[in-house]
Design a binder for these strands. Structure first.
Lengths: 210, 210
DNA sequence: GATGTTAAATTAACGATGTTAATTTACAGA
DNA sequence: TCTGTAAATTAACATCGTTAATTTAACATC
């Protein structure tokens, strides 16, 4: 009766091989720079074999994205965070920026590529809102603590709005860097300076003066 | 001898027809959603005819982008701006956000699609830095006035860095909206609130307290 | 008016893409 | 040994960006 189990195990193995090969290619060449045939070549399968495991290229890509979101959450979880919520917000911002710069193609796929954005399935609904596996929830959780400690001005008491603004701020720096950093039109200041200036400005603008 | 002129005129006309058709298609379906054959069909030419006018798909796209940048600059130029530089910065931010929301696909092509980013030609170099036709220069010009008026804190005296930070802030709001607004993962606050919160926060964070 | 020149446009084709359908291979159970 | 089933392959289709060769059409020159 162990045959079914072995088959299932093998299936998962080749599925993972597909995912690993696809990841490395996507990271280096972006979504449109990678073909199903290239992915298949790398694991010495035929291109159509992939369709045994994924509906189409989009589904393969989507699965990788989900894994990457989990990875981002893991990065937050793995880094020791300060006790002071404000300090922790700075750390979160810096960690997020590091992630974007270290994995620009992941980042592009995750946050800069418009998605169809369908309903979330049951596994999604399990993850959503859990700070340990949902990076946005982790941010919001810290914002709630900071608001609870009375750190923010009275206009900024909505944790959801504050989280979305903080997210948008660091996202603006990263995504502009990714999309435009070789653009000769603007004389870009160094990335670290831009990141620091953004974090300083947006946080100070929201916090009560001290 | 008027034959050369008429030929040139006709050439410009069909070139414009190509550009118009390509724009409408690109706006509605994005870069990869449009093929040269579709563009050609729409103006009842063969696909290869386009190559008589543009080197390749990238060049066609690039020309459209340049036109859109000019349009953005014209939007700034057309709107009457307040005398107070700080007030004007708010208006610039709001105008930029309106542009992004009104022309999301233009915006996507201009600011969210990584470009090869080659050298700038002589026409580019003519435009760059002129506030009347270069939107970034217009922003920087206003920032310089605000800094000159002593409105910014001592950490924010670099007009280039301040401009890039302000730009990244509003860009973060818009691009997140475009890429993620149908994402069920986050319970988005209304766009206007997010835009206002960002503008308030980042500006207050840079200005001297009052 | 016939001829040659030139630009503009077309047709045909190449290699590559995502994907589907039909077919083969491998192997477990009877 | 035969059968059924899952996994993988081959062949094919339509479409893509792009190039090369060819035709069309309008002009200039004789």
């Amino acid at each position: 009766m162990g045959v079914k189990e072995r088959r299932e195990r093998e299936r998962v193995e080749t599925r993972d091989k597909i995912l690993d090969a696809a990841r490395e290619l996507f990271i280096n060449k972006g979504y449109d720079g990678v073909s199903m045939r290239q992915v298949a070549d790398r694991i010495e399968y035929s291109a159509t074999a992939i369709y045994e495991y994924f509906d189409d290229k989009d589904a393969l890509f989507h699965e990788l994205c989900q894994q990457d979101f989990a990875r981002l959450a893991a990065v937050f979880q793995g880094r020791s965070m300060a006790a002071d919520p404000i300090e922790r917000l700075k750390q979160i911002g810096q960690t997020y920026i590091d992630f974007g710069l270290n994995y620009p193609n992941h980042y592009k796929l995750m946050f800069m590529t418009p998605h169809p954005g369908g309903e979330l399935d049951e596994r999604d609904r399990e993850i959503k809102g859990n700070p340990e596996v949902d990076a946005y929830a982790f941010l919001k959780h810290t914002v709630e603590q900071a608001i609870g400690a009375g750190a923010f001005r009275e206009e900024f008491q909505d944790a959801e709005l504050v989280s979305q603004t903080l997210w948008a701020a660091v996202h603006g720096v990263i995504s502009l860097e990714i999309a435009k950093h070789c653009d000769q039109w603007v004389e870009w200041r160094p990335m670290e300076k831009r990141a620091q200036a953004m974090l300083d400005a947006v946080l100070r603008g929201m916090l009560k003066e001290n």
